[in-house]
C-alpha cells in the first residue's frame, strides 16, 4: 500500500492504495466516479480515457501510484467548461451515442482533438478517433459532432477577428 495525493476534478484526494491498482479502478472504486468506463483493460478500446495534467491518457494501463501528484479530470469534472458544453450539445444533436459506454472516452478525445489541432478535417478526425471504439453508432455521428464544433469555433474565431478589425 502507498498513499497517493491526487487532485480529482479540482478536489484534493489523499488515500492509501494497492501498488497494483489501476488509475481507472481508483477513480471508479475509491472515488466513486463511475463515468470512467473500463473496457478492454489493455489500452486499446479507449473507454477509460481521462485527462491527466490536461492530457488524455489510458487510465486502465496507468497505475494509480504512478499518477501520484497529478491533476485528474474525469467526465464528471468539466462543469460548465465552454468547449465541453459545445461538444456535449453536438453529441446530443447528432445522436453521437447510443449505449453510452464509449462516450466518456470519446468526449475526452474530442476535447483533446478540438483544443490541440487547428486544421481539422474529416480524415484527421477519423484517424484521431482510431483509439476509441464505438459499437453502436458506426462513428459517423461522432465525427459529424466533432466537425460541427470545429466549424462553429472557426466561425466564432473569425467573427471576433472581424469585430476586432472593425
Amino acid at each position: 500500500m502507498k498513499t497517493i495525493n491526487i487532485r480529482i476534478n479540482g478536489e484534493a484526494v489523499s488515500r492509501p492504495v494497492d501498488d497494483r491498482l489501476s488509475l481507472a479502478d481508483f477513480v471508479r472504486d475509491h472515488c466513486l466516479l463511475m463515468g470512467t468506463h473500463v473496457g478492454c483493460e489493455q489500452g486499446v478500446c479507449g473507454a477509460c480515457t481521462l485527462m491527466m495534467d490536461d492530457k488524455p491518457v489510458r487510465s486502465c494501463i496507468t497505475l494509480a501510484v504512478a499518477a501520484d501528484g497529478s491533476d485528474i479530470r474525469t467526465v464528471e469534472g468539466y462543469g460548465d467548461d465552454p468547449l465541453m458544453r459545445e461538444i456535449r450539445r453536438a453529441f446530443n444533436r447528432r445522436h453521437a451515442l447510443q449505449c453510452g459506454f464509449c462516450t466518456p472516452g470519446m468526449l475526452a478525445t474530442a476535447y483533446d482533438v478540438l483544443s490541440r489541432i487547428a486544421d481539422l478535417d474529416r480524415d484527421r478526425i477519423r484517424s484521431e478517433l482510431g483509439g476509441n471504439f464505438c459499437r453502436c453508432t458506426g462513428y459517423l455521428p461522432i465525427i459529424q459532432a466533432i466537425e460541427d464544433v470545429h466549424a462553429q469555433r472557426g466561425r466564432s474565431a473569425s467573427k471576433s477577428v472581424i469585430q476586432a478589425a472593425e
Partner: peptide, 9 residues
C-alpha cells in the same frame, strides 16, 4: 504511434 492518449505516456 498508437493513439494520442498512448503517446502522452
Amino acid at each position: 504511434i498508437a493513439y494520442r492518449a498512448v503517446r502522452n505516456r
